[in-house]
């Protein structure tokens, strides 16, 4: 069995998630080869063939060229699995490669189950196993689902990779993340509001609870997108990653991108009217209640 792993460089740096792909290949018991559009001075510490294309020539985001480079490497390696991270790079590129090769793609894989690939469904409330047709398969891996244990060591065998063709998307540049006026990473207690609070007018109810605990106000993404609170309060993959002593999630379902930002908290309390909400998986205490009734009651007790 062979796995071809596709890593990413962002602003000149090799991203660590290549090692999650290595961990997945390890689970498969597959031999590893890699494709990177990067530079030889900064390559993963992994044994195996590394097909290295010059980032100076192709650019970090140039989907048609990156697609053709991966397809070229597929032809050289003839892998069974073509493996990407399920990231802004991976979910953008993987379907292009799968379509070009006309092979199945299975997205955001979280595990292996009897030779089938296990994925989440319905906002993590359900699971699905997917059986790809015989032959090659493209997979993207959920961030954090496969973790690499131990020290990274190894030296790839580098060979240059090239294709011809012009870019159909022009990359203009990166825009840095918005400045944060609240540093949630330093907070010991965070009380976060989710869409379950219903409307902007209810933010003070959650803010009052945060204050009663002596903590900061956090939020899930929809609350920020709707303009109920500032982006600097957002917790999750596209917000801040926090690990306070206490995290209280109010009306938050527990989508993977939110969990990624808070699951390392020491103690997690979730208030949700849905007993089956996925936040229950990480909560030390799940209070099944209407948060608009429970939060004021708790605030009063804390103050009293």
């Amino acid at each position: 069995m062979k796995a071809l792993l596709i890593g990413e460089y962002r602003e000149g740096k090799l991203l660590d998630n290549i090692y999650e792909l290595v961990a997945f290949a390890g689970k498969l018991g597959a031999d590893v080869s890699m494709v990177l559009v990067g530079d030889a001075a900064n390559v993963p510490k992994v044994n195996g063939n590394l097909h290295l294309a010059d980032v100076g020539k192709y650019g970090e985001y140039n989907p048609s060229a990156h697609r053709d480079l991966v397809v070229e490497a597929v032809q050289k390696e003839n892998p069974d699995y073509i493996v990407f991270p399920h990231s802004s790079y991976g979910w953008d590129l993987a379907p292009r490669v799968a379509a070009k090769l006309k092979v199945a793609q299975v997205s955001e894989v979280v595990g292996l189950n009897d030779g089938n690939l296990e994925v989440g469904s319905c906002n993590a409330k359900m699971r699905r196993t997917v059986k790809p047709a015989a032959g090659k398969v493209v997979v993207t891996l959920q961030a954090g689902a496969f973790s690499y244990q131990g020290e990274q060591q190894g030296t790839p065998t580098i060979s240059p990779l090239e294709v011809t063709g012009s870019a159909d998307v022009e990359f203009i540049g990166y825009e840095p993340a918005e400045a944060k006026d609240v540093d949630l990473t330093k907070a010991e207690i965070i009380v976060s509001a989710g869409r379950g609070i219903g409307k902007k007018d209810n933010i003070p109810v959650i803010a009052a609870l945060a204050k009663a605990f002596g903590g900061e106000l956090g939020a899930s993404r929809p609350v920020v997108d709707a303009g109920w609170v500032e982006h600097s309060h957002q917790v999750g993959t596209t917000g801040q990653t926090v690990s306070p002593k206490l995290y209280v999630a109010c009306g938050i379902s527990g989508a993977i991108q939110h969990l990624a930002g808070m699951k390392k908290s020491d103690f997690i309390v979730a208030i949700n009217k849905d007993k089956d909400a996925p936040i229950g998986e990480v909560a030390d205490v799940l209070i099944v209640a209407d948060v608009l009734q429970f939060a004021p009651a708790l605030t009063a007790k804390l103050q009293g």
Partner: peptide, 9 residues
């Protein structure tokens, strides 16, 4: 992109 960074194309 991840961490609030954006790519303009």
């Amino acid at each position: 992109l991840e961490g609030g960074v954006k790519g303009v194309v």
